[in-house]
Write a protein that binds this DNA or RNA. Sequence first.
DNA 1: TTAATTTGCTAAATCGTTTAAGAAAGCAAC
DNA 2: GTTGCTTTCTTAAACGATTTAGCAAATTAA
Lengths: 344, 344
Amino acid sequence: MKKKRPSLRDIADALNVSTTTVSFVLNGIGKEKKISDQLIERVENYLKEIDYKPNLLARSLRTGNSQIIVFMVEDVSNHFFSKVGRVIEDISYKNDYRVLFCSTENDAKRTREHIEVFTERQVDGFIIVPPPGIKKEIETLQESGVPVVLFDRKIEGLPIDTVLLNNYKGARQTTRHLIDQGFNKIAFITIDLDQNQMHDRLNGYKSVLKEEGLDEYMLTLPYDTERVAESRKKIREFVAANPQIDSIFFATNYLSQSGLKTLHQIDSNLVSNLGIISFDDSSFFEMYAPTISAYAQPIDQMGRELMRLMLDRIKNDGKESFENISLDGELIVRESSLKKYTRL
Amino acid sequence: MKKKRPSLRDIADALNVSTTTVSFVLNGIGKEKKISDQLIERVENYLKEIDYKPNLLARSLRTGNSQIIVFMVEDVSNHFFSKVGRVIEDISYKNDYRVLFCSTENDAKRTREHIEVFTERQVDGFIIVPPPGIKKEIETLQESGVPVVLFDRKIEGLPIDTVLLNNYKGARQTTRHLIDQGFNKIAFITIDLDQNQMHDRLNGYKSVLKEEGLDEYMLTLPYDTERVAESRKKIREFVAANPQIDSIFFATNYLSQSGLKTLHQIDSNLVSNLGIISFDDSSFFEMYAPTISAYAQPIDQMGRELMRLMLDRIKNDGKESFENISLDGELIVRESSLKKYTRL
DNA sequence: TTAATTTGCTAAATCGTTTAAGAAAGCAAC
DNA sequence: GTTGCTTTCTTAAACGATTTAGCAAATTAA
């Protein structure tokens, strides 16, 4: 059924020259390879005439690279990841690379399988949000000579290019903002996920409270998305047990969103009466009433840094040093964290 | 730098057999090809021992297929598309296919370039949300024998597998729901995008109003995301000019979200006093106060249908008939469209 | 005039698979 | 002992590009 597309061989035959010649011209190294100007022109004209498109598979097989970069995240439909993916896609595109997105589901097995398949397909690089328990595979991958850049989470004790948000600093800034606004009974609601970024955020919060001699109010919810009801109940109990709190710092935007809903159910004035801020921004916060303040990850910059490291490593194979990029986000102050507003 | 991975040739040499034999065993057709049981075992053991992974590029080059499906949408970071992408990815995964996501930006040129590169890379199929002006390329692609399935938008006069939402029916159902709830001055806010699905939604709305002998209240906003301020202003004017309207039907969820914000700015009670419903659901609506009713696209079913058509066409190359799947969504009634609630 | 160099091109190997065609060996039957 | 049939395995030609090595003719140098 499929029509056969012309190959280099076909072209060479049609022009009565060798495939070598055609290949040289095709790759623009005709002059360098001492092909005469007339012949170059003749070949170029013919290539244009039949609108020749080389078979990239064959080229990849021969040259060993595929112009494909893999971007593996926990979930491609997650807003944050897909936005970063978009930036990566754009930069790749401009550099003649294509991007393969895929989801790990934070599962080591699935990640392993993905890595395997893509390695077999000779992709030129991996940008990975590593799930737990994947250290060895990442190491092997790296040793096999494929560029790997980690994103969003680090792996302890592995020398590797990594782009992260400075969660500690961000959480400090966020906490301090609440204090600056006059809040001093600040609750921190997080999830029971044993990940670096979560620890860092918690520590950032704690460190500021300590400096200011303020009390900690902490609530840890189950990570499991299925256990929404349980989370709701816990928030309810927490709020009831700590009526003195005047503000809440949600450690992820997912939490903020379901948290807001629960708070509103408890008492429709609660959201307006509390100072609220979320780690991780969301378009939702801009629409909500009141608008919700947030510490936003620098999506554009993250994508750019990831691609800078990646392209660097692709070009500069065997580079010995690794970069650990720690980026600052931006505090987006909206209505919910303003003392003035909330006390209206 | 890159370590060379063992090839079939290496294995054949190590075992003193031919590559053919190894290949047969590798592909599990040893018995069929009359390789003796002992030899099969010997080869299998060795393959396992060195954990051999074939070079899929070479295989693709030889066999002409790549086990890769491309999913081209307007924007990979769009919630709806990324969710459908996720479903497609899962089904593909189970069928040993991988998915390449990419964004067309609704731009014909970019789409063309994508199609070109992927064709050169011998992908096995395309699922495309077609931008305007791409009919010819889709046709050429299809003629070249590659399976193509369209999604979300149809192309008039092109016999091709397509999966769509039944926008007309959905809009009718949505409008009727508002009427059932007791609303009778229903506004329809849409965008000036010349796309089938938008026309269908509008026509659905109109047809019900006509049947019921009700007045139309329509507002068309610029599609351009940059012109937010203008849209806001138009909504303001529209609401001021039509104080009698008791409900609003937003034609896309993007509109609903910015619309809600504007309504809230005009008057913080307006959202609660109007009946509101959105075409296209969003997690946002679940969180908002009041919760917003919506007509949800059947994401799962869409992904499944797309993959059914795709796998069907891959297996059954050269099938002459085409399927036009028109799916029904689901009306998710939340607080915002209930007369009882809004009149509290 | 001969040797050396340059110019302009090609033959053939290569990447790592799949697969059509064929060959060697064993056995049965006439 | 030739013929024919299995069984079991191999040879070699693809797939479609890139790239090394090298050949012949033309040019330059000595």
